[in-house]
Design a protein around this nucleic acid. Structure first.
Lengths: 210, 210, 210, 210
DNA sequence: CATGAATGAGCATTCATTCAT
DNA sequence: TATGAATGAATGCTCATTCAT
């Protein structure tokens, strides 16, 4: 009765469930995504699910961690690049491309709905941190080479790039006329203008009343 | 003969429940916000809740509609202004200020989590439409006077202002270092640069690989 | 601040509620007949209902008592008759006619559904008793004059007349093809045959296996 | 690989719940029979109930369908009989015997109370139809052989047999002195007289005033 | 008396999770 | 390891009833 644990098979199954979870969570939100629905989508029995994830929340965390891991991988792939501005714009572009998978914005919304769960908040914070850790060195290098505006600290610039990327994702998911195809280039262009700091600081507040 | 029409009392109660709902939904998300918790917060019995809202979802819709109504009111208050760019930046600024009430971003996240409910999606779409209807005439006037870039159709510019506003809201709710106080002015400044169209179009795609 | 109790007005209101209750109970059954629905039908406020009946059940009891009272009145109207068989058949006929008001069988069904409530069971028993009290003397007289079979005690005959009347009511309410108009005469004819005792006793059990 | 198909176990459980439902419904009526009470009676958890029946109403329908099925089985068991009258009286007798299980009349009352639910009405109609389908061929054969009166169409005779059977059931459940044991034979005898048509038609309406 | 807003006990039903096989 | 039957805590919602006006 030897039962090889066969870690490959295990990992494959795990990814299969993660894919099903992503699909169902995106479609129906956290509460709408019953474990039963996820299992059906994954083609497994309800008991099997809990062999791989102790709770439904843990599945969500696993998906988030997968995203974080991808961010880290992205960092490695950029080793050797010498054009900080280009790198930053490439990153923005690649995040825009992520939004083309319709499950991504749906999943992001689903997660937003359970951000009050401490574990989810923590995973989201970790994801955010990974994104910043990826951006910061390139921002700093860009500022050093003069390609990136220096009137704002790197951390703040990172936040604003995240703002653009997050806002873009939301638009795609909410606004039918706003698609990755048609708007991606404008995202990159807008980010470039922001990073260059054109027309910035000095007269920033003119013409607006609080 | 009883005199109980008192629509004032009714409206007051209704707003009291809406306030409690806003608080609890922001804190705990849609599912975490049990009707029991909302009633406790509002200081009413569970039955009373359903005198005012037939459904928990209907409370959410009422809150959203309140927001839509505020947008419409804002439009009226702008009558007579002759500086389209100033108006647009004021609007951005006022949306940024909305984010200062910590319940707003929390509520927005909660709603995102149930956007798969058709009624919620519809209300959100109506809200979006009201926002665009508010922006579009000013964008068009700004283009006519030359204050606003003309390389993009008005509808697209409206989407991008919504992107900035939405991204801002998300950042505030996710990133502790990103506060309305410190970032509001930069939002307005960034929007101005975007609306002016500095450094746009021509070289937009340079330096980014898809 | 003189408030004349005006017992007439009170009684009228009471009957109005009873009528509404009869209608709604017949249509929707006991549980489906919410007090709110009855009040709407009666055109009164929900509070008013409880000025006339302490509980919903009490309304049901009041309706049943009304029926019992009618039975008693019927008894009085028969004073002076000298044809026991004719009286009995007239009674059967008049009960059949009651079933022509479509609310009656519906109400009977509704009451059957809450017969497990002791108060309802008691009222129903009282109704049954009134019916028997009405029948028994005429059965006895009929047996004395030889018009009615004597092989069964009067109480049993009364039960069987109730059986015919109850079964008739049920058929009318369940079977679209079975109407008071078409079946009333056959009911009376069948009851007559039963009361006369044609073909009875001796060979009753032949040809049937238990 | 799990082996849990075990449809036998499933069916057994199902019947166990049906039995408990029959008991509790008969005792307390539809509304009084809370799912909690039924589960307690059946010795199962509340969740288990809904593995077997999607709805409390569906349990009622299942019980009714069981009855309909029994009627159909009865039909099969009569194949080969050549005495139509005997068959009809046997059927009446067997329905009387059903009433000996005290849960049957109680259940019938409970169902009467929710006949306004369309699904219940439909199931009841199906039951009625099955009963008629069982009776009709034997009535027709009886008329052909001259054993059964021919002054009434078969469908009407079927209705009247149902009237007798339904009235009997009601009496048993309402009248303590009316028991299956003491009245069964009289039911059969009365049905026989009715089927033979003794003393019928011609003078049917004499002596009764409408 | 008449009213209808307020109440909260009570109920059907859902669903994440467990566990025997 | 895979399964799905069993579980019961938790929740949204209903409705008879009360009571201040």
């Amino acid at each position: 009765m030897a039962r090889r644990v066969d870690p490959e098979r295990h990992e494959a199954r795990r990814l299969q469930i993660i894919g099903a979870g992503l699909t169902v969570l995106a479609e129906r939100g956290y509460e709408g995504a019953t474990t039963a629905a996820i299992c059906r989508e994954a083609g497994i029995g309800s008991g099997t699910f809990f062999h791989y994830f102790a709770t439904k929340t843990e599945l969500v965390l696993a998906i988030l961690e997968l995203g974080t891991a991808e961010t880290v991988e992205k960092a490695a792939a950029l080793e050797g690049r010498t054009d900080p501005l280009g790198v930053l714009l490439d990153l923005l572009g690649s995040w825009a491309d992520d939004a083309a998978d319709p499950r991504i914005p749906g999943f992001v919304r689903a997660v937003a709905g359970v951000m009050h769960l401490p574990t989810v908040a923590a995973a989201l914070a970790a994801d955010d941190r990974a994104q910043r850790d990826l951006l910061l060195p390139w921002i700093e290098r860009g500022q050093a080479t003069g390609e990136v505006r220096t009137d704002l600290p790197p951390a703040r610039i990172a936040s604003w790039l995240a703002l653009l990327s997050g806002g873009f994702l939301e638009r795609v998911s909410v606004d039918d006329a706003f698609t990755v195809d048609t708007e991606r280039d404008l995202l990159v262009a807008t980010a470039r203008v922001f990073l260059l700091g054109h027309g910035s600081a000095a007269d920033a507040t003119t013409g607006t009343r609080r």
